[in-house]
Nucleic acid binder design. Structure first.
Lengths: 122, 122
DNA sequence: ATAATATGTGAATAGTTGCTCATGTGTTCA
DNA sequence: TGAACACATGAGCAACTATTCACATATTAT
């Protein structure tokens, strides 16, 4: 019975550095925040959405244009634009039948660039 | 027959701004790069991995400690650490039976912080 | 050598997700 | 009014993924 009872029973090995674990636990952001953070990055974790973001960083475009540019169906693009809008990464304006999308966040480019920096270094 | 033949046939609507589409297409990075970028961000798109990265930013830790900290099995953590290592985000060193993990990239914190900035603004 | 411990790993599974297909909504134009 | 067009959206499916489970490997201690 050497198991530390203060820690959950789901780990099947001992806690080696309890002091460090407790110290780090105090500094961790709250669970909710970390989940939101993961959800935010999940949006960048798809090549279609990455391409859309990259394209919109170059110019405002309508759904048809994006579909043609990326060689995909309008429906697929529309679904992804919905995801991007939920994440507050793009905004849209309607002009007659046509809906124009553009970036809605100034650090989208910064985030993409930092990702690029990483994969280029490796 | 007004459809532009220069563009793929998978889009079920017309191209409205052909000049802009062509212009943006020229500026887009190559496909390969965009896929790598998506794969890179995919790693951040999971709350377990986000929590591991956050923890390792505070202190170097062994697998057991991380499992205890996050209240998960050692096996689950080990699998995720493998993913993080593939992405060159963590490195490890062995000391006897114990394997210590730490961050292997100085912009991990930057990327996390920018994600945080975004979700806080919204 | 044997037991105990820390970690790695393959297979299986449950949950998630991106796309397609069909259809609906809203707008323009004849 | 109705046809044509741009876009949105729900259901369904195939592909992917995170976790669990069982077990393998490696190191230490007795």
């Amino acid at each position: 019975m050497s198991r530390k009872q203060t820690l959950a029973d789901r780990c099947d090995c001992e806690v080696i550095h309890e002091d460090i674990v407790n110290q780090v636990r105090e500094k961790m952001p709250q669970e909710e925040t970390l989940y939101e953070l993961a959800d935010f990055f999940k949006v960048f974790g798809d090549s279609t959405r990455i391409r859309i973001l990259w394209a919109l960083d170059e110019a405002e475009m309508c759904v048809c244009d994006i579909a043609a540019l990326l060689n995909m169906t309008q429906s697929a693009i529309s679904h992804q634009l919905w995801v991007l809008k939920q994440a507050k990464l793009v905004r849209n304006r309607k002009e007659g039948k046509v809906v124009y999308y553009s970036l809605d966040d100034e650090h989208v480019r910064l985030i993409l660039d930092q990702g690029l920096t990483h994969i280029k270094e490796v």
